[in-house]
Every structure is written in C-alpha cells, then in structure tokens.
Write a protein that binds this DNA or RNA. Structure first.
Length: 350
DNA sequence: AAGACGGGGCC
DNA sequence: GGCCCAGTCTT
C-alpha cells in the first residue's frame, strides 16, 4: 500500500478527539495553530478552550485589551505569539472585514504565521495542497527514509519540505497533514517509538538499519546563561505595591513584574541598597528591606537560568504609581512572579 | 545563518 | 541535565 493511504488508515483509527477537529473556520484553526507552536497539545488545550470561550470570534479578540489577552495567555510561554495573535486579529477584523486570507500565500503575510502555520490553515480550511513540516514530520520522514540531513539548517528545511510535498495526498491534504503529525505525536515518538506495531515497519529504513534513535539529526544546542534577579516587592501600609511592564526585546515582553534589579552575581543587602533603583522609587530616605527567600528561586527557561531573590521593601512614600494588592492578580505576569504571588499573597487577594 | 524566545514533560 | 514540543521573528 502507498504511504499516504497507509498513513490515513492509521489516522482514522487512532486520531484523538480534539475540539479544533470539529470545526473548519479559519479563526479556530488559526488560533489552535498559533497556540500549538512549540507547545504540546496537552499544555495548549486548556488555553484553547479559554480563548474560544472568551473570544468566540475574531472580532471579540480584536476588541479585547492587550493586557487581557496576555493574562489569558499567562503560563503558555513565547508571549510574542500572544502579541502577534492580537495584532493579527485586529488586522483581520478591522482591515479585512473579519475574513482571513483564503490561501497559503495570503496567510503567510499575517504576523506570527510562518510556513508551517500557513500550510496548516490553508490545507485544513481550504483544501489547498501544501504540506506541513513540523517537529513530528521531521521525525517521521527522517526515520522512514533514513535522512540524516540536520533538520535545523537551510538545506534540511528545504529537503524535508520538498519530500513532504511530494508525499502529500493532494486529494485530501487536510487529512494527510494532520495524519502525519498525529502519527509522529502518538506513534513515531521521540522516545520509545512503537516500532513493533508500526504500520511502516516493513519499509522504515531507520528501523531496518537500527538508526531510529539517531534520527532526526539536529545541530548544536545553545548553552544556558545564568542571570541574577532581585525583585523589589513593595508591601506598603495601604496594601499596595509597584508593578512595572517589561518592554523591549528580551524575555516576557509586555508582561508585568515587580521593580527589578539585575546583578552580575548573587547580591547581598548592601550591594542591593547601593542601586539607583531605590532612589528612583523611594520618596524619602526611610526604608527597610528584608530578604524573603533565603535560597534563590531558580527559574529555568530554555536558554537561561534565573537565580531570583525577592526582597520585601517597606517605606512610606514611593515615586511610581502604586497598585492595590487585590488588583495585582489581574495583571499578566511571568510564571516566576505567579509562583511567588501564590505563596506570598493572602488568599483574599487571589 | 544563528540566536532569541517559555514552560512543562520525559528520561 | 538534556531533549523535545502542531515554529516564528530578528539580527
């Protein structure tokens, strides 16, 4: 039997029941695809449900404040996805009369939509014969055809896209694309693939040559940087604090956090007090600080480890806008801050 | 072409 | 501790 036929057969018997598989509107498909970029379905699913409930149409999403969108996205990571999602929603709602582009090329122009997502939406919503190549597709194809071209350089990206496009069932690209991804996710897994019961175990070259564990080939991993964060948690008499919004290019752009002092190494109270940040924030010269966590909280991101100390600051007067403690929970914050708040805030404020 | 960008799950 | 996940954007 031919590859697409076998694949589809497997898919129809093994596919999961997922909410975006019951619909074909580009809004829902687009939303699900953005959320699932570099994200496992189990992690993204609850967020998808929340978003569809809060924003049933692209117009609802377009009209929402950015802070509200980021708050709903909180914990899902890669927050540029949420900012691009919101911007694209406004573009579609207000410039395109609520209609998404109806082909691969048009979809590719949308912010946050790259080759993979444009192919997914175009094939699933419009039946356009464009092959998706995600992490699952790289794995499945590299193993079955024993391709050791690295998947994360230009040559590999090109080679796998061409191969996927050649294999694509042009009669039903929607089913083929979802089938090959589902097969990669459930059967041809990164670890412990089910080669014994694999529908392709008579033709898989990696299996034949005992190279399943080596494939796909991926080039070099970047090294992890250490950073040292000191958060100034103002806990004022009137039950208020200070939050600042992160801006610029780095992590957590658009999210809120306590005033931050970043140092070259783990700093003590004396070093911290000498920072300009205090004179920027504190009205008089009367203040006290107390280290909240004796051991630094180590927050691990893909490419940096954040060694974090929370300092409780008491003073009478501050120079920046204050936020009532009971309103802190409304702001979108990184998981690092969310975890602290869950421990520090009284239940009444959560 | 190479980095940056989150958080969670698995080994 | 390292790898991976329905990738995209920036430099």
């Amino acid at each position: 039997m031919v590859f697409p036929k076998r694949l589809t057969h497997w898919y129809l018997q093994n596919k999961r029941d997922l909410p975006w598989r019951k619909v074909h509107e580009p809004y829902q498909i687009w939303l699900s695809e953005i959320m699932l970029q570099q994200t496992r379905i189990e992690q993204g699913l609850p967020y998808y449900k929340k978003f569809i409930e809060a924003y049933p149409t692209v117009f609802h999403l377009a009209k929402a404040p950015q802070d509200e969108v980021l708050k709903l996205w909180q914990g899902l990571g890669y927050y540029s996805r949420a900012r691009n999602l919101h911007e694209t929603a406004k573009h579609v709602a207000f410039d395109l009369n609520g209609k998404f582009p109806d082909n691969y090329k048009g979809l590719l122009k949308l912010k946050g939509v790259g080759d993979y997502t444009a192919s997914a939406i175009a094939s699933i919503c419009y039946g356009e014969p464009v092959a998706v190549v995600d992490g699952n597709v790289y794995r499945v194809l590299s193993r079955i055809f024993e391709i050791d071209t690295p998947i994360n350089n230009t040559a590999g990206i090109k080679e796998f896209k061409i191969l996927a496009q050649e294999l694509l069932d042009e009669k039903d690209p929607a089913t083929f694309n979802q089938a090959i991804m589902e097969f990669g996710a459930l059967h041809c897994k990164p670890q412990n693939p089910k080669c014994d019961s694999c529908p392709f175990n008579d033709m898989c070259l990696a299996l034949k040559n005992d190279r399943v564990k080596e494939l796909p080939v991926k080039l070099k991993k970047s090294k992890v940087k250490k950073r040292f964060f000191n958060y100034l948690v103002f806990d004022l008499k009137d039950e208020s604090t200070i939050l600042e919004q992160r801006k610029g290019k780095g992590i957590w752009n658009g999210l809120y956090q306590f005033p931050l002092v970043e140092t070259e190494s783990l700093s003590d109270e004396e070093e911290l007090k000498s920072q300009d940040k205090f004179t920027d924030l504190i009205g008089g010269d009367e203040f006290s600080i107390e280290l909240y966590n004796q051991k630094p909280v180590v927050h691990k991101l893909s490419h940096q480890h954040l060694y974090t100390r929370f300092w409780i600051v008491n003073t009478t007067e501050v120079k920046k806008p204050k936020i009532a403690l009971q309103e802190v929970i409304d702001y979108p914050v990184p998981v690092l801050i969310e975890n602290f708040l869950n421990e520090y805030l009284p239940d009444a404020y959560k």
